[in-house]
Each structure stands twice: as structure tokens, then as C-alpha cells.
Design a protein around this nucleic acid. Sequence first.
DNA 1: CTCTTATTGATAATGATTTCCATTCTTAAT
DNA 2: ATTAAGAATGGAAATCATTATCAATAAGAG
Lengths: 154, 154
Amino acid sequence: MPMQRNIRPMWWHGRFRGCGYRITAPREAILDVLSKSDDHLSAEEIYIKVHTYYPAVGLTTIYRTLDILANMGLIFKFDFGDSRARYELSEGPKGKKHHHHLICTNCNRIIDYADFIDEEIKLLEQTEKGLLKKYNFKSTNHLIQFYGLCEKCQ
Amino acid sequence: MPMQRNIRPMWWHGRFRGCGYRITAPREAILDVLSKSDDHLSAEEIYIKVHTYYPAVGLTTIYRTLDILANMGLIFKFDFGDSRARYELSEGPKGKKHHHHLICTNCNRIIDYADFIDEEIKLLEQTEKGLLKKYNFKSTNHLIQFYGLCEKCQ
DNA sequence: CTCTTATTGATAATGATTTCCATTCTTAAT
DNA sequence: ATTAAGAATGGAAATCATTATCAATAAGAG
């Protein structure tokens, strides 16, 4: 009972193969779920969504795949302080525009914002250069988050 | 067998009492450990250090106290991606100067840096104002981290 | 000094993530 | 298309940081 598979090569297939990974139905399903969601999904949430279409896929595979995807840089892994990792597609053909997060410490809601991003990015790049010079630290990524109270919780 | 206690009121006693908390030996020991360490200690590391002087203190108390301290704003709780929370004294009489963190994704080393902080802070404050106006999000705190490779791991 | 109740520590429970391992599937080579 | 090698999978068990429980203890107001 082979799973239904999308024959047409997806945008990420090349990169995936290039890293020596095989294209499998669970992996396609996971990336499909991620690319169709605007939320910051947890492993279990992804599992449930994938499970709807492919009940055979196990939670273990979800974790394994997410780990690979994060290491490849196809997705970002976030910690918003609710003791479960959350994932979202990074920039790319299907990725949302680069953004940062506001985290409500009361209701745990996450708000994406991309305003002021340009100035932030500019400053961050400057900082990264400075860090490289002073600490010889080669930054590949950064994280900015604001914690506080959302509109409803104030 | 009462534990030895520091009679002289510490800098945080007032604030602690003000919040309705009692001053206890375990709490003093934990704050003492934090104020004498430059590292980003995990709950277990704190437990071990405290345990050296007060073997009677249990890990549960460590967690409970750290939670209170973090809620009061006396300490910061960080996640550096190694699946255990880490804590450090926030600014204050005994706190280090405000700084941000570089995280080596290879060896997990944490480097504190305070360079460029001024410009970063300025931008962050501007951003916070903008976020309040646009999203009515009242930010109380922010987080900036850089991920990459430290000198040794490149 | 006493009384109220916050605090404590040992133990058990929780819950997210990993490890194990026999089975199944992808894919390069035939 | 067929096959063989080993990558990938899923279910169960294991980890491991953090929490909940609860009877015993200690802080501190009066």
C-alpha cells in the first residue's frame, strides 16, 4: 500500500538530494504542512496534520525530519518558552518574508511582525561584522524576540 | 539543625519581602551562588553548587526559587538550545552589565558581549515604541542572540 | 514564645524528545 | 523493469528536564 506521492519535483527536492537525503512521502507531507501553514507549529501539531492524510506516519519521523530540515536551514526552530519547540519554514520560494516575533507572556500568543525589520537587519549586519572582528565569531543566524503583553492581555 | 544564615540584610531582601516572600536559607544560598558566578548556570549546576554548602537543599526548591526570581525580574532565564534552561542575575547591584549572547552551534559555548549594545538598545527601544503603537503590544523585555561558530570551532 | 501558613524536600508524575531495532521503502546499478 | 544495499520508518521503551503532591518544617507577625 504505497502512499500517494507527488510526482512533480518540488522546489526543495534538489537541495534535499544534494544533501544525500532521500525523498519520501512523510517528508513531502511534512514540508507540505509547513508550507501551507502560517502558524508556528509544534512537532505534535504537525504530526496531527500529517496524520490526517497519512495515518501511517509516526511522531518519531516528524521529529527526525524536522531535525534534518532545521539543520539544512529549510526551517527555523523556535523556543517561545512554552516547553515545546516550534517550527516554521525559513525564507525561500514558499517561506514567509523574514520577520521577528512578539511573545505574550500571559496568553502565549505569538505575533509576527516585519515592521522595522529593515533597520533591525541593518544594525544586526553591522553588529555581526563587529563580532567577527572582535571575537572572531562567525554568525550564521540571529534571533530577536520581544516579550510582553498583547492587546487582549493588558 | 538550623542552617547558618547571613544576618545582615542583603540587597534583595527588601524587594523580596515586598513581594510577600520569606527569606530562607535556600533562597539566600541560591542568590549567593548566582551572584558569585559569571556563567549561565542551569538549575542542576546551581543545585550542585548550593548542595556543597547546604546538602539539605533539594532540586525542587532550586526550581521553585528560580521561578520566583525570574518572575520578580531578579534573574533572567535563557534557552540556548541545549534543552535546559539557564539562569543569570539580571542587572542590579550585583548583576553584570547588560549584555547579549553569542551561541556556538557546534560546541555550545556562550559568549557574552556588550559591544554595540548601546546602538542595539536604542534601536530596540524605538522598535518597542513602534510595536506598542501598531500592535498595542506592551513589551517588557527583549532577547537578542547570535548563532554561529566560535573561534575554535570554525 | 506561639500560632499561622509559607516553604521545603523526597518521591512520583509529566511530557517533550530520543533511542532502539526489526521491517519497509528509495534509489543506484544492473 | 529487477535487484540489492542501506537509508528511512514507526512503535515501544528510554531519557531527562521540569512539575505536582504532600506531610513535615521553619519564618516571622503578634
